[in-house]
Structures are given as C-alpha cells and as structure tokens.
C-alpha cells in the first residue's frame, strides 16, 4: 500500500486578473522507501502541488478545489487545522529551497530542532536535547552539542540545509518532501547533500518526494520521476525509462536542450521555442501544444489524459499525457 496517495488534486488561485489554475487534476502515489522525483520549470505547479497536500498555501488566494490526499488511508484534505498540524512536521517532513529564509534567525539551531520534538512527540527538554544532538550527528554536523547553541547565521549554506534536514527528520516522518533543497547551494556542497540523502535513505528508509528543475540531480537519486508542465503531470516513469525512452514531446525536448558534461559536444543547442503557458481558466487543450513540434488538431480540441505506455496499470509503470505516439526504437540511443 502506498504511504501517500493523491487523487485528482486541483488548486486554483483567485487573483485580480482572474483564476489561475496552478494544479490541474494531479494524481500520484508514493510507495514506502521510494524516492519520487518531480521535475518541471518554474510555474509548472510542482511546488504548489506539494504545498496543497498539507495545507501550506494561504487561502485566499489559494483554494484546493478537488481531490483526495490519503496519508495511511486517511484523507488529510478533510482534516481540521488541528489534525493537520499533527501531520505537518510529524508524519510529513519538509525541506525548503532556501535554508536561510526557512530557519528563524532569532532562535538557536538547537531550539528549532527541539521544537517539533517537544510539540509532536512530547519529549522533555533533556530528552529533546539528546535527540537533537543525535540528529545533528546524523546529518553530519561535527561538534553537535556545541552547535546546538549557535544561531543560523553562524552556519554556511550547506550546513544550514543539513540543519533543515535534521528538523524535517526529527519526528521520524513517513514522508519527506524536499522542495528544491539543493538549488541554492554550490555544486560541491550539493554533492555533499545528495550523498547525505542517499545515506539517510539507507539508514531510515522513509519515502521522499524530491522537487527540482535539475534533471541531473534526478538522474542520480530518483527511483521514479514525474514531469510536470502547465500544472499537469505530462509523463511519469521509472528513472531509467524516462531518460532513455522519453515519450512526451516536452520531456524529449527538455532532455535534448541541456548541454552534456561528457561525450560528444553539441554544435548548437536544441531549443524549445516559445514561453510556458499562462494558466488562466480550466484547461481545455494540451498545455504544451503551442511549443510542441508534433501538435495536431486534436491537441487544441482536447486536453490529453494520461495513458499507460508499457501496459502496466496507470501510475505503476510508464505513462504519458499526450495524443501523439513517440516512434518506438529511435529513443534507445538518445
């Protein structure tokens, strides 16, 4: 049974210029111990989807209009604010992009790690402190006991992100949602954090949702990948399948557009012409049609539904939301 299952999630923002349909009919599940990568450009709805799950979006302007979010079989979208508070930070942990703005500058790091422990797990101060030291050691911060008494500004970016991970892991969550956790970091520091996450997965075995726009990061750590575009899931597949047999024209174009670090150097970069869509109004057509090289009349008339590519049940194998069918073999050496 999946730890987390999302069905038909729709999130709309009410703005002065009208409604913005940021998340449109998104369904996915997360199996125990799995790392699900979510890729997409800014505005594709990847962060808003995850924020909607646990009621972190301010309402108004945001409104979760439809859908179910099942955590251990219970729909948390129907939960009261108090019940939701028991889920956030306890059963679902978060790591955000910018560790400086998500840590409180006026509290010590120790106080911030101990807060969820005392609130959610009811530990005494001494117990919470012992656990906090343990957590800081777990995420590889040397001299942990001394560091508890220091403030976020005394840490470097990479160290702060380690602290964020320690806070997210404090209550042994079933699910960890990481929203662009390494985007603000340098590559050598990013490599440290990725290594840490791989290690923690082996030790703790929690399920992780990893949001990023960096396909390189995804290739290295994800088991399964969801590609989002214009507020929808356009393709979903195990990681190897996605990189070697991409089906959706957007995924295919995206993979061709990034320059490679090794191998043959491309003379000219492939380009995806045009701009990402503006999500005004409920979608009635494929969001990618204006930039798609394979678009035809049906793409304008009908928003494609996700369909399985490899015969497995929807969401369990490789599926794509596209009217066009990619040719069978040429992608093998892509």
């Amino acid at each position: 049974m999946p730890v987390l299952e999302v069905r038909g999630l729709k999130t709309v923002f009410q703005t002065r210029g009208g409604e913005v349909h940021a998340v449109n009919d998104v369904s996915f599940h997360l199996r125990p111990g799995e790392l699900l990568g979510v890729v997409g450009e800014s505005g594709s709805g990847k962060s808003v989807t995850m924020m909607s799950l646990i009621g972190l979006l301010p309402s108004p302007p945001a409104q979760v209009r439809a859908g179910e979010v099942l955590l251990g079989g219970v729909d948390i979208l129907k939960a009261s604010p108090e019940e939701l508070r028991k889920v956030r930070g306890a059963r679902i942990g978060f790591v955000f992009q910018d560790p400086m703005t998500s840590l409180n500058p006026v509290f010590t790091v120790g106080a911030q790690i101990m807060e969820p422990l005392r609130v959610h797990m009811g530990l005494t101060k001494a117990q919470a402190e012992a656990r906090a030291v343990e957590l800081l050691e777990l995420v590889g911060i040397p001299d942990a006991r001394k560091r508890l008494k220091t403030y976020p500004h005394q840490f470097s970016g990479g160290m702060r992100q380690r602290v964020m991970i320690a806070i997210a892991l404090a209550c042994d969550p079933e699910v960890l949602i990481a929203d662009e956790p390494t985007t603000a970091l340098d590559v050598t520091i990013q490599a440290q954090i990725l290594e840490l996450v791989k290690e923690l997965r082996q030790k703790l075995g929690m399920a992780i949702v990893w949001i990023t726009h960096d396909l390189g990061v995804i290739a290295g750590i994800a088991d399964r990948v969801m590609v989002m575009y214009g507020g929808q899931i356009v393709e979903q597949a195990p990681v190897w399948e996605l990189f070697h047999k991409p089906q959706h024209p957007y995924t295919r174009a995206l993979l061709r557009t990034i320059p490679k670090l090794g191998g043959q150097r491309e003379a000219r970069l492939q380009v995806i012409e045009g701009q990402p869509p503006i999500l005004a109004g409920a979608p009635t057509a494929c969001p990618f049609r204006a930039r798609c090289a394979h678009a035809f009349a049906r793409c304008e008339a009908e928003n494609p539904l996700r369909r399985p590519v490899d015969g497995a049940a929807l969401g369990h194998g490789h599926d794509v939301a596209c009217h066009w069918t990619a040719p069978a073999q040429e992608s093998a050496d892509a």
Partner: peptide
C-alpha cells in the same frame, strides 16, 4: 560534483566529495 542527466552515467561515476 556536477550531476549528469543520465542515470547510466550517474551510476558509473565516482564522485569526489
């Protein structure tokens, strides 16, 4: 340290941390 968008290459690389 630069991640590469290819799971095969990613699996083979030795990373200097």
């Amino acid at each position: 340290a630069v991640p590469e968008p290819d799971p095969n290459r990613e699996g083979r690389r030795t990373r200097i941390i």
